[in-house]
């Protein structure tokens, strides 16, 4: 079988977000980067499927030259090769992203055959647009199931469990399909040293699509005002226990 995982490079924001001087981006000078958490589970699931059923796995991203780090991370988890749609670091909106990914998927499928499953994260950690997977699925004319916490192959179909209030809704759709997943789908493995070594030598196909004018156009970012919590000290160490219990009584939970 053939499986594709689509990922996005995002900063690891830590405790406090700082913006650039023009307030159009996060100041990432002192930050590390990762792939969005939901997508990491998509990568892990793709790797497990190929381990179980054999075949070919590919990871795809649209992002700056440095996003090759996240492609290598995905290959360290077991993905065979990568496609990198390189940008100049400017943000792309969801429509432009989906359109470039769709073109790249069509080209790849034309050369090497159809993907049975294409994984996306349910939403990216940073821009949270909730739509790239839906746009790609529609453009390719494939069924889409979103927000998945469990995915099971059943012959030429896939059984999907979607997290909803009060449990999970189940869908069974024919392959090929597009699935968007959420963290908790699996526990991604910690990449092994041999995995990392192997990832360095795996092929990354690079192209540079043109960025269309965004129709959802970012003007500026802002850090929301704090919630005005007072951070009242109840003391230090075990001696603070009586004050904590009094607070719990006052709050009516004890």
């Amino acid at each position: 079988m053939r499986v594709l995982a689509c990922i996005k490079r995002v900063p690891i924001t830590g405790g406090r977000i700082l913006l650039t001087a023009d307030a159009r981006a996060i100041n990432t000078q002192h930050l590390g980067f990762t792939m969005s958490p939901h997508e990491e589970c998509g990568v892990e699931e793709a790797a497990r499927m190929i381990e179980a059923y054999r075949g070919d796995s590919v990871v795809l991203t649209l992002g700056p030259p440095e996003a090759v780090e996240q492609l290598r991370d995905a290959m360290a988890l077991g993905i065979d090769r990568a496609i990198h749609l390189q940008t100049d670091g400017q943000e792309w909106d969801a429509e432009g992203t989906a359109s470039a990914l769709t073109d790249a998927i069509r080209t790849e499928e034309g050369a090497s055959g159809r993907f049975d499953i294409i994984f996306f994260g349910n939403e990216s950690a940073d821009s949270g647009g909730f739509q790239v997977g839906a746009r790609v699925a529609h453009a390719l004319g494939r069924p889409l199931v979103t927000g998945l916490k469990k995915v099971t192959l059943e012959g030429s179909a896939v059984r999907c469990e979607q997290e909803v209030e009060g449990g999970r809704d189940v869908y069974v759709v024919p392959l090929p399909a597009v699935l968007t997943v959420k963290e908790g789908l699996n526990l991604p493995r910690y990449p092994s040293v041999p995995g990392r070594m192997r990832a360095r030598t795996r092929p990354v196909a690079v192209s540079t699509p043109a960025r269309p004018a965004p129709r959802l156009e970012l003007v500026r970012l802002a850090v929301p005002a704090g919630q005005g919590r007072r951070a009242e000290s109840l003391g230090a160490g075990a001696g603070a226990a009586p004050a904590v219990v009094e607070m719990l009584q006052k709050a009516g939970v004890l």
Partner: peptide, 10 residues
């Protein structure tokens, strides 16, 4: 954005 940790004017 970021689950509410950041606001975007657009």
């Amino acid at each position: 954005r970021w689950g509410g940790s950041l606001l975007e004017e657009a």
